[in-house]
Computed example of a mutant assay.
Amino acid sequence: MGGHTLSFRLGPWLPWMRMGDRPGYLIYSATGRKTLTVEDLPSLLQEQLERLEASSEYREGADMTSWLYFQEHFEAYLEGALFPVT
């Protein structure tokens, strides 16, 4: 088993946050490590994986990103909707 890794990146405010030109930025961070087997994972995660019902079908289409979501709901944004749009 390998050691822990840490990754992060900085980004600007996202448009739907309505932060305008206020100073600041977003910090995206994640930690992780490699495991050889499912049994090497924490028990809570093992339990959640056992309950997971993953589809065996391939879904066509692009992955959803925050920017794509914003683009899809741009009109709602202009009308003052709060995100996520329900």
Rank of each mutant, 00 (worst) to 15 (best):
residue 68 L to G: 02
residue 77 Y to A: 03
residue 67 W to M: 10
residue 41 L to A: 10
residue 72 E to G: 04
residue 17 M to H: 08
residue 54 A to N: 02
residue 7 S to W: 05
residue 46 Q to G: 01
residue 56 S to C: 03
residue 69 Y to I: 06
residue 60 E to V: 11
residue 30 A to L: 03
residue 43 S to Y: 05
residue 22 R to C: 11
residue 54 A to L: 14
residue 63 D to I: 08
residue 3 G to Y: 06
residue 42 P to K: 05
residue 26 L to R: 14
residue 2 G to T: 09
residue 72 E to R: 15
residue 13 W to A: 03
residue 2 G to A: 10
residue 58 Y to P: 04
residue 22 R to V: 10
residue 38 V to G: 05
residue 48 Q to V: 02
residue 59 R to M: 14
residue 29 S to W: 11
residue 15 P to G: 07
residue 8 F to N: 07
residue 52 L to I: 07
residue 17 M to Q: 15
residue 32 G to K: 01
residue 55 S to G: 06
residue 21 D to R: 15
residue 77 Y to T: 03
residue 72 E to W: 06
residue 56 S to A: 07
residue 78 L to V: 04
residue 39 E to K: 15
residue 77 Y to G: 06
residue 5 T to G: 02
residue 36 L to E: 11
residue 26 L to E: 07
residue 68 L to P: 01
residue 17 M to R: 12
residue 67 W to I: 13
residue 61 G to D: 10
residue 35 T to H: 04
residue 70 F to S: 04
residue 76 A to Y: 05
residue 32 G to L: 01
residue 43 S to C: 03
residue 57 E to D: 08
residue 83 F to K: 02
residue 7 S to F: 08
residue 1 M to H: 11
residue 50 E to R: 13
residue 62 A to N: 09
residue 75 E to S: 05
residue 4 H to N: 09
residue 80 G to Y: 06
residue 21 D to Q: 14
residue 66 S to M: 12
residue 66 S to Y: 08
residue 23 P to W: 04
residue 58 Y to M: 10
residue 41 L to W: 02
residue 3 G to T: 14
residue 40 D to S: 06
residue 20 G to C: 06
residue 51 R to T: 03
residue 20 G to E: 00
residue 24 G to M: 02
residue 57 E to N: 06
residue 56 S to E: 13
residue 26 L to Q: 13
residue 43 S to M: 04
residue 3 G to V: 08
residue 39 E to H: 09
residue 41 L to T: 01
residue 82 L to Y: 02
residue 66 S to A: 10
residue 62 A to P: 07
residue 31 T to Y: 09
residue 4 H to K: 15
residue 73 H to L: 03
residue 17 M to S: 04
residue 32 G to H: 10
residue 29 S to G: 10
residue 45 L to M: 09
residue 18 R to C: 07
residue 28 Y to N: 03
residue 51 R to F: 01
residue 14 L to M: 13
residue 9 R to S: 12
residue 64 M to N: 03
residue 72 E to S: 14
residue 29 S to D: 07
